[in-house]
């Protein structure tokens, strides 16, 4: 049964032109790879991070100084998050410049835009978690920016009910960062790939 499953994951046929590297530069595939690295390193970081304002920073310091490979994993997580944003942006640019958002792929373009938005949101929610000065003030300014949006005050009340730096706000950013946003991204990415496969496109890995 497993063999059958693996067999069906791969496409029946591949167009020769799709195999040229300059066709897509594999940017989407590389972005997905960063997402996988982020998931892996993030799962490991979960074992040490403590999502409370008083203990968050200390837990990160403990991870950095007393855990074998802790500093490496955290750097890798941070670096891959930067890579994901850059690659998703480049992928979007490639899609725009080659006109790949046009008719049959319109639905997939919209899903891709949602993925771009979710990547930025995941990065933003993750930025607060270390609870250092940079995290605090970046989130503070970001939450003021949100207020400029229509319904921005309501959105702010949902995200930071007890102001930036409060225990509820940190817990919400944590829940969004480790479950809700990544889950939405993985589900959307799978749909994104499903549509590509159905339109006979080429996928990363498979």
């Amino acid at each position: 049964m497993l063999k059958e499953l693996v067999k069906h994951l791969f496409p029946r046929l591949v167009r020769e032109g799709d195999l040229r590297i300059t066709y897509t530069f594999c940017l989407g595939g590389l972005a997905f790879t960063s997402l996988l690295v982020l998931t892996g390193t993030g799962l490991l970081l979960l074992f040490y991070y403590s999502p409370a304002p008083q203990t968050a920073h200390a837990s990160i310091q403990f991870l950095e100084t007393s855990v074998w490979g802790g500093a490496y994993l955290r750097s890798l997580h941070r670096l891959s998050s930067h890579a994901l944003l850059v690659l998703v942006a480049l992928h979007t640019l490639r899609v725009i410049l080659t006109g790949a958002f046009l008719h049959p792929k319109k639905m997939n373009w919209l899903m891709g835009c949602s993925l771009l938005f979710l990547s930025v949101f995941a990065a933003y929610t993750g930025y607060l978690l270390p609870m250092d000065q940079l995290a605090y003030w970046a989130t503070q300014t970001g939450m003021e920016l949100v207020r400029a949006l229509p319904l921005g005050d309501s959105l702010r009340a949902l995200l930071v009910p007890d102001d930036v730096g409060g225990p509820l706000a940190l817990l919400r950013f944590y829940a969004l960062h480790i479950v809700i946003v990544p889950l939405a991204m993985l589900v959307l990415a799978m749909l994104h790939f499903f549509v590509i496969r159905r339109q006979r496109g080429l996928l990363p890995y498979l």
Binding site: A157, L158, P161, D162, D163, G166, L168
Partner: peptide, 14 residues
């Protein structure tokens, strides 16, 4: 969901 996510004490807890 909105009511669940906006606690009454939230606004004054800063």
């Amino acid at each position: 969901l909105w009511r669940y996510l906006t606690p009454r004490a939230g606004a004054g807890a800063s």
